[in-house]
Design a binder for these strands. Sequence first.
DNA 1: GGTACTCACCTTAGCTGC
DNA 2: GACCGCAGCTAAGGTGAG
Length: 445
Amino acid sequence: MTNHAPRRTILHVDMDAFYVSVELLSRPELVGRPVVVGGTGPRGVVAAASYEARRFGVYSAMPGSTARRLCPTAVFLPGNHDLYVRVSRQVHEIFRETTPFIEPLSLDEAFLDVTGARRLLGDGATIGRHIRERVASVLGLSCSVGVAPNKFLAKLASVAAKPRVTPERVLPGFGVFEVVPGREIEFLHPLPVQALWGVGPATLERLQRLGVKTVGDLNALGEVSLVSALGRASGRHLFALSCAHDERAVETDRAMKSIGHEETFARDLHESGELRTELVRLSDGVASRLRGAGVGARTLTLKVRFAGFTTITRSTTLASPVATAAAIISAVDPLLANVDPTPGVRLIGVHASNFGEPVEQLRFDDLLAQTLAQTPDNETPDNETSHPASTDWTEATVAIDAIRQRFGDTAIGPASTMSATGLRLVRRGAQQWGPDHDREQPKRG
DNA sequence: GGTACTCACCTTAGCTGC
DNA sequence: GACCGCAGCTAAGGTGAG
């Protein structure tokens, strides 16, 4: 059998210290200094660190308190998610000058399939250098580009292209790094095994017990041993990667499979009433995004993290997809009622999945479920916690969406989420890196 | 001692229906 | 009727990425 498909050329473009670099555009006096963007509260984490801050061992997802200890001279900035979204769109506009085949991974990285652009624009490395120059000249930002025949190798190549940090200084990177076709294994096998997509701390520990340190070690172990050690999916996946095999296409329009919001509180909550207020707020945010996406969800999941950091999830699956706050609350409220908050709750979350066409009419199953729930044996003691997912809410929801579209997100919201300073609504990325120092929390009583 | 948020995917266990 | 195997679904927890 012959394969006439042309060898693909995939680029992985990764912005360098993206959030910090965007902040420095408006604060040039901070260039060259250690700068950290992230949550400013005691429970915040680092979202991005400048390369100067990385010299001190500060890195993403590190607790803010640890970062302050390691680098007390760093400038800590709270971050502006909306601004990063806007700049990210501008970066993608530059990508689109080269190819329409773009798969965003996050605000600061994306895969580009430039196979079709090679004849016009040159080879992958040439296109990579062109994109780097455009991003620098138009936006004043720096990025690193990996070039390879597949997504997995392109991602690793962009890491190789990045600036390097030693405790003494920051060394410039290659900017563009290409994994030359035919030399994939030579590039891949010496790398540490945690370079593979899918090897996190837990898998790394298991692999280390098997004596695996590098990608080459993992490959030598063989697929059968890996499947027996890590399970079928992970074993096969990692073995394929260790052979440099990755046939996944650059997907330009991936359908979302779940939508959720979760929030860590500045202080632990101990009372059901406080938690329910937060639950209403989160449910409203999830419902709003579901409607924005034009979908409904059948499965609703409540997530609770206790003061001791143990986390539980409780979920329920409805007969038909819903997209209103009332319906979501009526689904997750009974789940919350079974959680004892007295040890202290530091986080709650609401997640929606199992998407379908939103159906706001009650189906027979829902009616049956509601009827069963209202029988004497199952009667809810507190009527306020039992909201029917009825059509009564549909018109109100349409009106809410219209008001928010016209007057902004905070124009209207659940009364229970009202505070002295106004509505506290949930928006994606609003509390991306933990609670702020001064953010208002629900009061006791 | 500290440890965010969002999303995807996997594993395991239990239940139900055939 | 009891039991078994299987498939499909759901719930819960875990892992990993960015």
